[in-house]
């Protein structure tokens, strides 16, 4: 059942990407509203997918790579829909729905069977850990998109071009504000993710911290974002520097999530994909 909802969601994310791309070309507001509607339908279906999988499996479905990618895509769309309530940055939709769609396609290619839950994952803390961690990741994804757009817009302004590209991107201030806002929400979530993770580690393996690659890299990511926040508040790392840091931070997030899982064997490595 969940696979049907999953496919349906992926299909609607795809249509949303198409709508947002045609918005970028035409700049017609109605087209971006269609994109938003399609993404919302996809999100609803995706939510049903997660719920049915939870019921079918009997545990929070974030235990293998298929489930994690799918959950990551879900949090990205969730964050996008929430951000959209406050910040009317329509182009953002094109970036975030596209990233979610790519994650969905990878997830689709991976084994989707529901397997018995490994004993270590059977914990009260596990769902909290993954929810905080992925919500943080999704917010950092949004910051990454803002960073990329900022660098493009800044380059347009510095090189004195006011052409088609510049016209389609938000103002520097809007992008920098959203980047900062993302940092102030994402950083606490990442911190909570790490704390709940270490509490869970204490239950699962009998120690809070074991320098397993995943733990090490999440700490590196945490330090990156901590530095970013600190520099911003003290010496005013905003604008260009903040945009670059958002991109660097996101690379670190991605590596912690995927790179470590695929390249560096450790306790977090998913056994079944």
């Amino acid at each position: 059942m969940n696979v049907y909802f999953f496919t349906f969601a992926a299909l609607f994310y795809f249509l949303a990407v198409l709508a947002y791309l045609s918005y970028i070309i035409s700049l017609k507001k109605i087209v971006s509203n269609i994109g938003l509607a399609l993404a919302s339908i996809g999100f609803a279906s995706h939510t049903l997918c997660l719920l049915t999988r939870y019921v079918e499996a009997g545990y929070t479905p974030v235990t293998n790579l298929h489930e994690s990618l799918s959950f990551f895509a879900w949090t990205i769309i969730a964050i996008f829909l929430i951000a959209n309530l406050r910040y009317k940055i329509r182009v953002l939709g094109a970036f975030l729905t596209a990233i979610a769609l790519i994650l969905m396609l990878f997830a689709f290619a991976l084994p989707k069977e529901i397997l018995p839950l490994a004993p270590v994952l059977r914990s009260f803390w596990h769902p909290f850990h993954v929810t905080f961690a992925f919500l943080g990741n999704a917010i950092f994804t949004l910051a990454f998109c803002c960073g990329v757009m900022y660098l493009i817009q800044e380059h347009q302004l510095k090189s004195k071009k006011m052409g088609t590209v510049a016209k389609r991107l938000p103002s520097l201030k809007a992008l920098d504000d959203l980047n900062y806002r993302a940092l102030t929400f994402g950083f606490p979530l990442l911190t909570l993710g790490i704390i709940t993770g270490s509490v869970w580690a204490e239950y699962a393996w009998g120690r809070y911290w074991g320098w397993d690659p995943k733990e090490t890299w999440s700490l590196i990511t945490w330090f990156l974002y901590a530095a970013m926040l600190h520099q911003r508040l003290t010496v005013g790392w905003r604008g260009r520097k903040a945009a670059i840091m958002a991109i660097v931070g996101f690379v670190s997030v991605l590596f912690t999530f995927l790179g470590v899982t695929l390249l560096l064997p450790g306790l977090h490595t998913y056994s079944n994909w």
């Binding site: 817009q153 302004l157 006011m162 510049a166 938000p170 103002s171 520097l172 201030k173 809007a174």
Partner: peptide, 9 residues
């Protein structure tokens, strides 16, 4: 227009 591109408004 340039000012708006930098500062939003």
């Amino acid at each position: 227009e340039l000012a708006e591109r930098i500062f939003g408004s």
